[in-house]
Design a protein around this nucleic acid. Structure first.
Lengths: 214, 214
DNA sequence: ATGGAACTAAAACGGGCGTTTTATTTTTCG
DNA sequence: CGAAAAATAAAACGCCCGTTTTAGTTCCAT
């Protein structure tokens, strides 16, 4: 009977959906492409998932959960670690999730999330609350430890600066590849990039701290 | 006969194209919508522009040129200004272009550019070379002045950190609005945000400089 | 073995799309 | 003016899409 997530049509559809949605986005992907890739009938998506959009949101949520399991923001640290260590784990996790696992199928799946950010669907709210908000709160906690005397506005601004640096490698991946291919995020330089963002950010945070205190 | 860019069907189509493409993107926008908004026949886009995609790229290029004319990266500074002043003008221009001019029609037009970044069309290369590359080179020049002894790799990494901070307000506009609406980019706080990014970045650059020199 | 449920397959539906064709009106200019 | 050119309008074409329908198959408990 095979476990529900093994080789059945539904599992193959989900896998094909991952690939095709990642490649073409929600609107441009076609059920016919997905079914062809899955070796299934065009009606199967409706039968197993209830429609194209339902498959889409399933794929997206599944991707986010996997990614967070693979590269949690607090990998290798505890609440007792220094704020610097926790920040480094956070940045590193961000970049690792952006980089993907080398499988080109998953590599492009991040686009689905970007698409939601640019043109939110009706599921954006749930994604924010279930994924982004808790994750971002971890960063705010770290920054509160780094800037114990700062007001919340400053904390949030710092978090924006850090997230911005991380997110660029996802957002501008194609542009960086064309303009400065040596600067792109790769498995071989992810530690280097993490180090750089850490130095830059800690320098920025120090500057903010002294400006506030003076 | 009216100047070519006054009130003719072609001009109205371009204006309607701006609005509809901005609202729905290349694929989702329909020429029927565009023509209805322009008060023109469905065939008029093909007649005047040669097809939907041609109209799209016309709209996009036109938008970029306007935006760069309205908020050039070196507004109010000269090559003789201090690097800090030039960097501030650069960051401010970035944010002003992201913010738009208050006209909701133009405000959402930036999405077209973001879409190109996420899912490049065949015109992406031209956009990069004609718009992004020259603009980015200005930033690299500024950073070379700020870090005269740094290697090119460091210069580029710094530019990524700065661009990342600016781009976040475009990329994550919807998410920020939901999670921390007080932090969103608005006309009322654009100077404050510019100041913050400047301080954070100058702190980061200083840290990078001393790390390299030591 | 058999009846029913789960699943798969094939085909057609209904609608929206970009584009083309054809016809009509408006403009231009000798 | 009057004919050629430019511009608009109306209609139809042809394609692709998500979904539904209908029919057939497989599976499993009884």
């Amino acid at each position: 009977m095979a476990s529900p997530t093994e080789n059945g049509t539904k599992a193959r559809l989900l896998q094909a959906g991952r690939k095709v949605f990642a490649e073409h986005g929600l609107k441009n992907a076609t059920i016919r492409d997905i079914c062809a890739l899955a070796g299934a009938n065009v009606a199967s998506v409706n039968y197993h998932f209830g429609g194209k959009e339902k498959l889409y949101v399933t794929v997206l949520q599944d991707y986010l959960e996997r990614e967070n399991r693979r590269h949690p923001r607090d990998l290798g640290v505890t609440p007792q670690s220094t704020p610097e260590e926790r920040l480094r784990a956070y940045v590193r996790s961000f970049l690792l999730q952006t980089l993907g696992d080398g499988d080109p199928e998953n590599e492009r799946l991040g686009k689905l999330l970007i698409q939601e950010f640019i043109e939110p669907s009706q599921h954006f709210g749930e994604i924010i609350e279930r994924h982004c908000r808790p994750t971002h709160n971890m960063l705010l906690d770290i920054l509160r430890a780094l800037l114990p005397d700062a007001d919340e506005g400053t904390i949030k601004r710092c978090s924006e600066s850090i997230v911005g640096q991380c997110v660029l490698f996802d957002y501008a991946k194609e542009a960086i590849n064309r303009m400065h291919p040596d600067l792109a995020l790769k498995a071989s330089n992810i530690e280097h990039i993490t180090d750089f963002i850490m130095q830059f950010s800690l320098g920025g945070i120090d500057r903010i701290r002294s400006a506030k205190q003076q």
